[in-house]
Amino acid sequence: MASATAPGYAKAHPRRVTAVLSVVGYALVIGAFEGLIPLFPELSRETVILFSDLIAVVNSLALTSLLVGWWFIRRDDVRRHRAAMLVAFALICAFLVLYLWKVGGGFEKAIEIREGQFLAAYAGVVELAYLAMLAVHILLSVLAVPVVLYAVVLGLTHTPEELRQTSHARYGRVAVASWSLSLFLGVVTYWLLNHVYAWVPR
């Protein structure tokens, strides 16, 4: 019989817990974008810029942790794999807080390609490529949430021996692939927006 404690319930019903956590996460993001959740104090223009830089650093570290964790499990080093993936998940949570605060308390940026900048003569193509990468980054981030959470819930509530009898490995592979590509594209679009081209508040 399943334990009545929260960890016991999560172990017995990982899909339900994943569904609830996913809905909460989506609600927080939508609430921040629409200004429905007044959780975040207003940010100055300088702080929004600082948050953008911090988000890029956090995403880079999260991507590194994901790839390191994948490398460890390929060598059957479960303990280090678990540690690396928990670090990656913590960094992704930190990213979410920073991103929601930046959007809810500040503003978003729109790319602006100015004369004399790299490939400015092909500004339309460059902007289309940037928007395509941004769209894939956002879409993967949204779609991967329940997959990542399910893999994490299973990983936190089962022993390594028990995990072999679950779908953790299959979901974990999808989570690593989708989040790695999403994070990589997020870092690339950050560099294009903040260091290659210019931006205007949106």
Rank of each mutant, 00 (worst) to 15 (best):
H137V: 06
A123S: 11
A10K: 09
V68F: 12
Y99F: 13
V17F: 06
E108K: 15
L134E: 06
L183E: 02
L183M: 06
R173M: 08
L156R: 05
S65T: 14
L28T: 15
H158K: 09
T47F: 13
V125H: 06
E115H: 07
Y26L: 14
P146S: 10
A120P: 03
E46V: 15
T159S: 15
Y26G: 13
L66C: 10
L181N: 09
P160W: 13
A129M: 07
L86T: 15
R82D: 03
F33G: 10
L63T: 05
L66T: 05
A144Y: 03
T64S: 12
V23E: 00
L54M: 10
A121V: 09
M85I: 15
Y150E: 00
R16D: 12
V68A: 13
I73L: 03
V78F: 12
A129N: 02
G155D: 03
F107G: 04
R79T: 15
L185T: 02
G186N: 04
W191L: 14
F33V: 12
L154M: 11
G155F: 06
L50E: 05
L43E: 04
A90I: 14
P38D: 03
A32L: 01
V148Y: 00
T166A: 10
L149D: 00
R75D: 08
L61T: 13
P7K: 09
L43D: 03
E162I: 10
A198P: 02
A135H: 07
A120T: 11
F95T: 13
V174W: 08
